[in-house]
Computed example of a mutant assay.
Amino acid sequence: MPQILGVSVDALTMDDLHRIIGKIVSNDEKAIIANHNLHSLYIYHHDARMREFYKLAKYAHIDGMPIVFLGQRLGFQLERRHRVTYVDWIRPLMKEAVQNHWRVFFLGSKPGVGEKAAELLSSEFPGLKIHTHHGYFDITPESVENQSILEQIRRVNPHLLLVGMGMPRQERWILENLNDISANVILPAGACMDYVAGVVPTPPRWMGQVGLEWLYRLFSEPKRLWRRYLIEPWFILRLFLKELVGNRAHRQE
């Protein structure tokens, strides 16, 4: 498990993740499969609760080509195929769900968005068993709304629970409710259903492969994302340069 800029990541391909999920479900286990991108790296170093969340995650795959590039520069054996982002993964994952008869629950997005995305995915993958609930509710663990949602999840008893409420809100919700969540595999999934539903434009896939997807997203949602893409990377750059210099000094000793 590489340690990149102070965080642990797993070099996993999409096929690796499908095998891991299948094993967790077959063994009737419960596990968090988290992910890391530059935004999560920044939050990780500024939020103790986020660090606590990642300690509980069984795996943390790479969701961001910049992490692959930075890891390569630091000497890790990472390839493009080790970057698995939900924009590319959601449909193959739903295909796996149909083939393996996995029940899916999506919690997140604005009211109506998850339902629309679920309808589109169900039309693409007949037989998909998917339930949804929006992410605009009082996430206080003891609140009536939160307890009602946990009960809905218990009734469905999903094999896959995708939580798409943005970082770090989705991770905090998982962390605070983990003992009461009835699901085998818990996946913080960000805006995946927003892309499926078409409420957020999907970046051209070639941009993701060359590490420029952030630029498309910045121009698409400048008011929401300007800080993430124009301010936070400077902190990441300092971490990278510090680690790079430290590695070189260590090799020279």
Results as ranks from 00 to 15, higher is better:
27 N>Y: 13
104 V>L: 04
72 Q>M: 15
112 G>V: 06
123 S>D: 01
145 E>H: 15
135 G>H: 10
107 L>H: 12
251 R>N: 02
184 N>E: 13
94 M>I: 00
60 A>S: 15
156 V>G: 04
251 R>Q: 02
91 R>Y: 13
163 V>G: 08
154 R>D: 14
128 L>I: 12
226 W>D: 01
8 S>A: 08
142 E>H: 09
125 F>Y: 07
102 W>A: 06
93 L>H: 04
134 H>Y: 00
31 A>M: 12
109 S>M: 01
242 K>N: 12
237 L>H: 12
217 R>T: 07
95 K>R: 08
122 S>H: 07
194 D>F: 05
229 Y>C: 05
146 N>D: 13
92 P>A: 09
89 W>Y: 14
182 S>W: 15
249 A>M: 03
235 F>I: 00
247 N>W: 03
145 E>M: 08
193 M>C: 06
162 L>C: 13
184 N>Y: 07
105 F>I: 03
238 R>T: 10
202 T>L: 11
71 G>T: 07
115 E>G: 06
104 V>E: 08
100 N>T: 01
185 V>L: 05
145 E>D: 09
226 W>A: 06
93 L>N: 00
129 K>A: 04
183 A>T: 10
233 P>V: 06
160 L>A: 03
114 G>K: 07
144 V>M: 14
232 E>H: 14
182 S>A: 14
32 I>V: 14
112 G>A: 06
17 L>C: 06
125 F>I: 07
40 S>I: 00
149 I>E: 03
32 I>K: 02
144 V>G: 13
155 R>P: 01
239 L>D: 00
199 V>A: 10
127 G>Q: 10
96 E>P: 01
49 R>A: 14
229 Y>L: 00
17 L>T: 04
63 D>H: 11
16 D>H: 09
103 R>A: 11
40 S>Y: 06
235 F>L: 10
139 I>T: 14
74 L>Y: 02
175 L>C: 13
57 A>W: 02
25 V>T: 07
